[in-house]
Amino acid sequence: MLDNVIIGQYIPGTSVLHKMDPRAKLLGIFVFIFVVFLANNWLTYGILGVFAVAAILLSQVSLRYMYKGLKPIFFIVIFTFILHILMTKQGEVVYDLGWLKIYNGGVKQGVFISLRLVYLVLVTSLLTLTTTPIDITDGLEYLLAPFKRVKLPVHEFALMMSISLRFIPTLLQETEKIMKAQMARGAEFTAGPVKERIKAFVPLLVPLFISSFKRAEDLALAMEARGYRGGEGRTRLRVLHWGFRDTGALLLLLILAAVLIVLRTHG
């Protein structure tokens, strides 16, 4: 099940999208979310569709992979679609069962909302598929930098994110080790009623917490030993490069927004 969730997975590559500045991609997503909500007729949804497909092609991530990533949300899409068909009573009746009337307005609305969801998921997945988590963190740190003035701990937040990213694989390995050790002592993690199963996780979670605290303590000490004293006076190895393509991409999105504003149905 989790293997199919593609949001959050990074696929290494050298496409234009991979090379873009994470800040541009983050801002781009932000703009795109607004743009999606501008669309309200077949033409504007069509244009968005062309845009989304073009973005996927540019990313060089295989279409099949993207389709696989959409699978887990199909249920939600279909559910939303049906909900709209049942709830919206606009336009002409296209189907009449007596107790249930389906209006063409409802069908239209259902299709639109479903498309909106699909577009959002596709484009957001593109962000994580073409950007390493650490680059996203860097991008966020830069974008949020102005909030430092209002005492928002942006540097600490970014450091926390990057350390978490660093330790996820370590903790997964650790989890597997402890699970095996407890299974060797006869523990079972998969059988029995829910209440028993929750209880069964205590022998896994307690050691995991304890080792994580120990790690945190060790890590804090190691960081201090290497001269860490907060964000003040720190230089950085990782710098982001904002290029023409980033400005271009954002301009393109703004043009898209303008086109949609013109073409959307008013009134």
Partner: peptide
Amino acid sequence: FQYPEHQLFDETVEKDVMFGPMN
């Protein structure tokens, strides 16, 4: 296992040692 002390979890040593046999 290597570093077997990393598998200890129960409130008392007694309960922890009893975990295996009772399973």
